[in-house]
Design a protein around this nucleic acid. Structure first.
Lengths: 198, 198
DNA sequence: ACCGCCAAGAGACGCAACGTCTCTTGGCGG
DNA sequence: CCGCCAAGAGACGTTGCGTCTCTTGGCGGT
């Protein structure tokens, strides 16, 4: 009577359904049975693919947001280069909620590594470009300094509660400006600006 | 036959039991029934006081760690003053786990405000003291800059997974030194050091 | 074109924990 | 001394997990 879905077609349907459930009910009330029902399939089909609720959630996130691998921007300005990367990070964060963020972090150490990836290759290249066009004297910044803007963005996401969350998207540009103007650029100039001692 | 506990004596017993359960099994596997059993009482006694599992957890945390209200240190050195506050924060964080941290943050917006309190009064006083003894030219630093060391400490706690957690306690002093030497002090000196333009 | 077999789809099952309820009885407050 | 509130104990209905069993569609091999 009915046609049955198979393979990757079925898998996509399920993960889309899971994502829809997360958006509608939040991570805490994501249920395997709810996803199965929404995808018009049985629980066993899900459990055949993922061991439990958490793994399903991880797969859903990976499906929705692949790994973040930006091309290295090269605008000719250190500030603009960082800003580009920060905007990219914020863009994908738009669809998260605090509930989802903390829930996943609590449940699955697996994803933590990906969330907190600081793109060291990209950042180092940006810094070397800044040296090349004379904005910096050298690119030997401590790891923690180079990734400071990214860490502060993420921290801002972690610190907000659900009611403050919508604000974040609105104030994103101000936040970027504050982080760069008040913190990152003064610091980098002090440590590696044209006149800095190595 | 048995003597019954009452009032605050009973309440303390319960919250101690809840904390023991959290430490033993983790926040995710904290159960109301487990706490009741460990405290040798009935579930209704708990539900009479707290509406649900989350509220019980909040009460437990508040019971175990009251609000953080440090006296303003005044060692005569900006670095030492900040270090004192940072050590205090880290000390109380020793008993947390990532599971507990993210779990609470996911479940209860209530506690977020307390976790992320940046002690603005304390920090401002420290900065004014630094001005008074000539270490800084002025104390008009952006909020975000003044609290940067505290935010970075907390961020470090949020970023670690369970397996990396024990490291944190061991490396705490190195972490403080890195944050202060590589980031905070250079930045503050650039923004408000003796020779800085306002 | 046919067939065998794997997996889709559906749902029952046992279990754990939630939150509500009912009942007995200890012991505080008046 | 007594009444009444709450402690202590546990039954109850519900939800969701993860496992299992069963029927049957349709892909892959020949």
């Amino acid at each position: 009577m009915q046609s049955r879905r198979h393979g990757s077609e079925l898998e996509t349907t399920i993960l889309d359904a899971a994502w829809a459930e997360i958006q509608e009910k939040g991570y805490a009330r994501l249920t395997v049975e709810g996803v199965a029902a929404r995808a018009h399939t049985g629980k066993q089909v899900l459990y055949r693919r993922w061991a439990n609720r958490q793994q399903l959630a991880v797969a859903t996130i990976r499906h929705k947001f692949g790994p973040l691998v930006p091309a290295v921007p090269d605008t000719g300005s250190l500030r603009e280069d960082y800003l580009t990367v920060m905007r990219l990070m914020a863009e994908r964060a738009r669809h998260y909620t605090p509930d989802l963020l903390h829930g996943l972090l609590a449940d699955t150490p697996t994803l933590a590594g990906e969330f907190f990836s600081n793109l060291p290759d990209v950042l180092h290249q940006i810094l070397r470009n800044a040296v090349a066009h004379g904005e910096l004297a050298h690119a030997d910044l401590p790891e923690r300094v180079a990734s400071l803007p990214l860490d502060l963005i993420r921290y801002e996401g972690l610190r907000r509660t659900a009611d403050q969350w919508p604000q974040l998207a609105v104030q994103a540009e101000e936040l970027f400006a504050e982080i760069l103007n008040d913190i990152f650029l003064p610091l980098v100039m002090a440590l590696a600006g044209p006149g800095a001692t190595r």
